[in-house]
């Protein structure tokens, strides 16, 4: 019984996604570091404590920016069969999501400013449940577009209000 397991979905996301995730995380950390630096310069109490705080932040940030994208890239995978969309995502906390194509309501593709920089896109497949959107991030644009077209066509072919 213990041997039953889910096989990973077939496709990996674009390798460039690693750089995108790293950049995304780095931006967040940079803001925090900037705040700390300003605070450090601003007025002069407890300098050692603040320097220690800054160093801790930088160490954590570096670890996160280096480890997270690699780890995440190993985990993130997706697959779309005629019956279902299947994804695996996360890094520290991982998740598989399976949504039948017959229950798909909308297929959206979005590109944030950072994603545009790396020529990536994400695809969100929503169902009638607020708990069940299936999100694939870090796809290259062509794949994302192809996936959206494919899923939209399939979803339209099924009748019903998908609840």
């Amino acid at each position: 019984m213990e041997t039953t397991t889910l096989r990973p979905p077939q496709h990996r996301v674009s390798p460039i996604a690693r750089w995108y995730w790293a950049a995304h995380a780095a931006v967040g950390w940079l803001i925090l570091v900037a705040v700390q630096v300003v605070w450090l310069i601003a007025d002069g109490d407890d300098i050692p404590l603040r320097v220690a705080g800054l160093v801790a932040t930088v160490v954590l940030a570096t670890a996160h920016v280096v480890v997270m994208p690699v780890w995440r890239y190993r985990v993130h995978r997706w697959e779309a069969t005629p019956e279902a969309v299947y994804t695996q995502s996360g890094w520290f906390k991982q998740e598989w999501r399976i949504a039948p194509v017959s229950r798909i309501q909308t297929v959206d593709s979005a590109r944030g400013p950072l994603e545009q920089l790396f020529r990536l896109a994400n695809v969100t497949v929503t169902t009638a449940s607020a708990a069940g959107p299936v999100r694939i991030s870090g796809l290259d644009r062509e794949t994302a577009q192809r996936l959206v077209d494919e899923l939209t066509a399939k979803a339209q072919a099924t009748a019903g209000d998908a609840t």
């Binding site: 520290f92 998740e95 598989w96 229950r103 449940s129 069940g132």
Partner: peptide, 10 residues
Amino acid sequence: IIGWNIERSF
């Protein structure tokens, strides 16, 4: 039931 999510933390 519309779909399934399987989740696990570290």
